[in-house]
Simulated scan of single mutants.
Amino acid sequence: MRPPRSPDAPHKPKRSWPPRDKSAPRRDFPRDHDGPVVLYGFHSVVEALSNPKRRPIRLLATENALARLTEAGLAERIAPEIVRPGAIDRLLTPDAVHQGLYLEAEALPALTIETIPEDGLVLVLDQITDPHNVGAIVRTAAAFAVDAIVTTARHSPEATGVLAKSASGGLEHAPLVLVQNLSRALHALGERGYLRIGLDSEGPATLDETGFGSGGIALVLGAEGKGLRQLTRDTCDRLARLDMPGAIKSLNVSNAAAIALHVARRAKPL
């Protein structure tokens, strides 16, 4: 019979089973919001290195990828570590397309609601959690010169990894504003003169028919399937829909964002 454990004996941590394979590739990125941002892929890395506000920490590059960076005049921004593609593969998920470039960098300076221009064009994301969708929205927002993308610190993907790759460099041009409470953030936008328009399939008018006024515009998008939460709907000034003449009446949220921004930018040109 095993003798009883002494209360002064050091505690041994329980082992998990099966044991973790330390040689297996990393499957996710750090959840520490203060940690480095992971960027990979040619466009994402090039835009980051071209952005003087983005401070690079570590760059891994294959010889071919470094040659492309040299052609773009960006090879001198940070001394790269020349590696084989497999070294980058082991740092990313199996389906990641890195094109021979992997960059760790500091997060961009955070914006607040108060620093957004009073007459700007803003996207507000209500718990859209898919990093591919959010990344595509960021890319579209950068194309339409959106002043900021407001989203919650929780229930939203971090601006790293898959999201950054899907944004294809858009993170350097469409600032993210992380808030703790979306309803309060919408109230703050309203106090600054923003017209808050929630996109809703049951909106009483189409977005084209909605008047945009002369102040700032905040387009509010909900998650696919769930749409806008009730409190978010109640905080919007107006609800508007995107009419689809075809057999399919709904769009991927990133496609809906592109159409909504096209309509809003026509009403609010640069």
Rank of each mutant, 00 (worst) to 15 (best):
35 G>S: 13
244 M>K: 10
77 R>E: 09
104 E>Q: 06
233 R>L: 14
47 E>V: 02
111 L>P: 00
217 I>H: 02
51 N>V: 06
215 G>W: 00
143 A>M: 08
222 G>V: 06
167 A>K: 02
162 V>A: 14
262 H>R: 15
112 T>K: 09
250 S>Q: 08
192 R>K: 13
108 L>I: 06
166 S>H: 01
264 A>Q: 07
162 V>D: 05
156 S>L: 04
256 A>W: 00
224 E>K: 11
245 P>V: 09
160 T>N: 09
79 A>K: 15
125 L>M: 11
261 L>Q: 00
31 R>V: 05
219 L>K: 00
188 A>G: 07
90 R>K: 14
45 V>A: 03
177 V>S: 04
60 L>Y: 10
43 H>G: 00
235 T>V: 08
49 L>H: 03
156 S>M: 02
72 A>F: 03
262 H>Y: 15
186 L>I: 12
91 L>R: 15
257 A>G: 15
21 D>P: 09
165 K>F: 08
157 P>F: 05
11 H>V: 13
79 A>C: 09
240 A>P: 11
217 I>P: 00
202 E>I: 04
44 S>L: 05
108 L>A: 08
55 R>S: 09
212 F>P: 05
148 A>E: 04
79 A>N: 13
266 R>F: 11
266 R>W: 07
265 R>E: 09
5 R>S: 12
203 G>R: 03
12 K>M: 12
66 L>R: 10
155 H>C: 15
244 M>H: 12
235 T>E: 12
263 V>C: 08
237 D>N: 14
149 I>Y: 00
49 L>N: 02
155 H>R: 15
109 P>V: 04
214 S>G: 05
103 L>H: 10
191 E>M: 02
150 V>R: 05
234 D>K: 13
110 A>W: 03
129 T>Y: 04
268 K>I: 01
96 A>N: 07
263 V>A: 08
18 P>F: 11
39 L>I: 09
187 H>N: 09
51 N>F: 04
125 L>Y: 02
245 P>N: 10
165 K>L: 14
62 T>G: 06
136 A>C: 12
48 A>E: 03
251 L>N: 11
268 K>H: 15
42 F>M: 13
175 P>K: 03
88 I>D: 02
157 P>T: 08
237 D>I: 03
128 I>S: 01
198 G>V: 03
73 G>D: 09
36 P>I: 06
54 R>Y: 01
193 G>N: 12
170 G>V: 07
264 A>F: 03
25 P>R: 10
239 L>P: 04
238 R>I: 08
95 D>G: 07
57 I>Y: 01
40 Y>A: 11
205 A>P: 02
40 Y>P: 00
24 A>H: 01
139 R>W: 03
228 L>P: 08
160 T>K: 03
127 Q>S: 14
247 A>D: 11
